[in-house]
Nucleic acid binder design. Sequence first.
DNA 1: CTCCAACGTTTATACGTATAAGCACTTGAT
DNA 2: ATCAAGTGCTTATACGTATAAACGTTGGAG
Lengths: 335, 335
Amino acid sequence: MTGVTEDIQRRPPTSVDVARAAGVSQATVSYVLNDNPNARVSEKTRERVREAAERLGYVPHASARALRTGHSGLVLLPLPMARTGRLAQEWLDALGDALNDAGYTLVYYGERKLKGIAAARDWAALRPVSIIVDSERLTKASVELLKSSGTRAVFGIGSEPSPLVPSMVLDHRQVGELAARHLVERGCRRLGAIVPREAGIDVMGANRWRGVCRVAPDAARLDLAFSEDEARELVAGGDLPDGVFAYNDEYAMLLISALHDAGLRVPDDVAVVGADDLPIASLMRPRLTSVHFDPTANPVELVTLLDEIVRGEREAADGTVVDLFAPRLVVRDSA
Amino acid sequence: MTGVTEDIQRRPPTSVDVARAAGVSQATVSYVLNDNPNARVSEKTRERVREAAERLGYVPHASARALRTGHSGLVLLPLPMARTGRLAQEWLDALGDALNDAGYTLVYYGERKLKGIAAARDWAALRPVSIIVDSERLTKASVELLKSSGTRAVFGIGSEPSPLVPSMVLDHRQVGELAARHLVERGCRRLGAIVPREAGIDVMGANRWRGVCRVAPDAARLDLAFSEDEARELVAGGDLPDGVFAYNDEYAMLLISALHDAGLRVPDDVAVVGADDLPIASLMRPRLTSVHFDPTANPVELVTLLDEIVRGEREAADGTVVDLFAPRLVVRDSA
DNA sequence: CTCCAACGTTTATACGTATAAGCACTTGAT
DNA sequence: ATCAAGTGCTTATACGTATAAACGTTGGAG
């Protein structure tokens, strides 16, 4: 109705559009906007290009760039959001910031259904430059697939170091060991450790229990779901150890509440140690003794390592292990 | 040293490689692997292509595909991991699954430094097909930029409906209102609400307080950092309301612990209501009355909506509001 | 025997970018 | 004046994919 130019498809402006607007070639636009040090462009032209890009609202097309350069600059983190604890999340956010500063982009890629090699294929499709993933999800075949599809740095993350790739580790046995040693020093005769029945955390629970066993080989394994009924039953069953590592602070609270209801005193009858050192730990009565986690791996240093591997300046040995958190006991009143 | 074929660059196989291996053209490979219904390929050839792709470990190049088709199939979620609560995270994971089923890919894009239009540019570079982002981060200019760069469905998420785009909302005033109404019905004369001083959640705190004010216009605003010292001071200051909405369960525990230390009884002297209904709520003594959140927005339905908007089958009115969670009071002993 | 339609496949092209290579022109040294 | 060495740009190309269009065969109808 109005004009002829109206019906022009309004698609996002490309570097060609910017070039046309600035009266230069597309190559010049690319040189200027990427500050390519090998290119020689006069300051006057640079200004014209930048102005045109700004005016048109030019945004480079990440896919096109990735296709051309061969890598996407993406660091993939295929973890479900809900599973990781708050501490780990804050650490991961810090990692994301550090990666940003180094020119990478951390992508939490929240996909869970695909298993084994199919999952690896899915990750590889994005041509990430690096990937940080649960050690258990990595097989020899999937690592090979990733590497051959251009992923330079594959990291595992989990309780155990991976034999396949460098890995970031939190050894849960140490956690149990730390708690158990304190309980023994405190004078406890029989130890026990709660192992949660909830899927997802049961593995960590079992590892922490094994750590307790390293100190007290005859420690009791107390399998428990997070429910008041089960806790009551456990306490009513009698024959309870006089020192219990309760897996974490929430389970500790569950246990202590059941003990109180049964008329038992903490720590006199049963000493209890939690883990995570949540803000509520020092609010409980008795105040909860808990395993605190100090982040040890500096995200910035980790990014440096990653960057070196990506650039090929360093070949990471498969056995490289980065400790994520150092467990430390905070002694209060419950044990 | 050994052979001549050794030094061939081992780059990820492309559809051309698959074509060569199967003795067909690259186009045929594309037709087969994408099950393109407009193409006619004999079953025998299909089989050959699939076999070759499998054997070579072919993985399609997402960037190349995105460049060709014009969209990446990505749904961007630029949220820091640490900020959202566990409930929200589980919901978001469910959303991710639903999106997967519909052929999209949810990407938690954890970048925080960029502000305003610069952030929008950063998002747009990935050419996402849709984006779900804090309502406060969206300006008129950034929405325009996103849309003009090909993002079909822009959603806001937050406490308030966005005037610019359809939004997913959890109205925190309702939360405060719900708690306050219960306290009043219970017989409390003077109400108060804790507003956390921690950055990031202070806004939600203020909104919940406003909700309390809708029921009790003269309600006291109790600004509080999460520290036992501050809580003690607050209680020692005297002149405390006889009914307090404590923002959430953790703050409730902080407050109750301070009240106990000061010799005050809950709920007789001061009634306390929490929120989030954490597992520990029913373990506290007295058992904590808390606002529970029921997820109301079905992720599958939301994905359907998103898909329709993306396909252009439906134009979402800017005012469209999707309620995320319905608050509901769980009455126990603390109020 | 011819012509047409259906079938199965190939050829050609474009998406937006980065960069190697080339080209015209200027400058200073010889 | 001549050449070498810059300087400031442009031209050309490739990355890997999806798909429109073209193409050669085959079978059957006329």
